[in-house]
Design a protein around this nucleic acid. Structure first.
Lengths: 191, 191
DNA sequence: GTCTATATTTTGATAGAC
DNA sequence: GTCTATCAAAATATAGAC
């Protein structure tokens, strides 16, 4: 969204995500957030109902994006290896678009209250879809036969940590990063 | 250390690490910790000086272990690939020995106060040593020629996230886990 | 839409009895 | 070594003026 059309509420959520990434949800106070916005804490409540609402807006929006895109990848006719390439591209895209939000998703989801169960469901579904792609690749012979659980863990934790690393390297072309990651994660590093 | 010889202070640190893993340092109160110990919050202060001291004891101890072991690996005569195998084993070992502490190290280091700079130095040194091993492997032709930074990121984030995953899978033989991880991280998953 | 003022709860930490 | 009682600071959130 264009910054000129960004609402005050959206601005609060964006600034909050940045602070949450640096110190974590619990360690950021409404006064910290207000100071970063250049207003007083009480003024925040004219736009949002609670600190908890901010966290929900950040986390659930991204989780829904992952869910939606995974369903699209899953229903395509690509080979398993190509589905994995697409998943890698998805994580690179969302991590570069919103590295602050990705940090919240990864580190602060457990501080969700009402939406905690909903988030857990989305996350488990995503992992199940990922695992199914690996299992199918093993069955068709595209992928080596090691425990899909360990393979998924290895790949997914790398992708989930991209937010730590992408903002430091914004000079790198994102397509190149996706390609290099695909090479490392899928082909390995052994010569 | 044997539980029978575990001091009350060590017990507090151990229980705190478990709570910190679940909710993060900032979200755990001294009252939470006291309740988990079966005593009142005020009683904790007979054994420790502050909440901050607990965090320091958890994080710095593990960081020192990583530093010490990395120096040992670095000074060995192993090939670069074998040095990587040893690093993987090191992370599996420390993550299985103390998954709660590893979670703190990864998620709560930024809440260190006096020891923050010291921790950052240890972490940067570790990453530099790791990168040097990869660069040497590229030079000698043992390892494919991709940016060592991306390769290190990919491997290290997987290893740093082991704590999430190991306690769920304690039925898995740790040597087998090290071997499978080595296979995935070094040889890749492509057939 | 932001402010001041304030209510209410929670926090880390201390003092002193037992 | 643990307790009760308590402090001082900091937290989320609300009310009402401008």
């Amino acid at each position: 969204m264009n910054k000129k059309t960004e609402s005050r509420k959206e601005e609060i959520v964006r600034v909050a995500a940045k602070l949450f990434k640096e110190k974590g949800y619990s360690a950021v106070t409404m006064r910290d957030l207000a100071a970063a916005m250049g207003i007083k804490a009480a003024s925040l409540y004219n736009h949002i109902n609670s600190k908890q609402e901010i966290l929900q807006l950040i986390v659930i929006a991204i989780a829904n994006e992952f869910t939606s895109e995974m369903k699209s990848i899953q229903s395509s006719n690509d080979s398993c290896i190509n589905k994995l390439h697409k998943i890698i591209q998805l994580h690179v895209k969302l991590s570069s678009q919103n590295s602050y939000g990705m940090a919240c998703l990864n580190n602060d989801w457990m501080h969700l209250e009402d939406q905690l169960d909903h988030y857990k469901t989305l996350r488990t579904d995503y992992e199940n879809d990922f695992r199914k792609i690996l299992e199918e690749g093993i069955n068709t012979g595209e992928i080596i036969h090691v425990k899909p659980e360990i393979m998924m863990f290895s790949i997914l934790t790398t992708l989930r940590s991209l937010y730590v690393w992408i903002p430091k390297k914004d000079d790198i072309n994102l397509q190149e990063l996706s390609n290099t990651l695909s090479e490392i994660l899928i082909k390995g590093i052994n010569k």
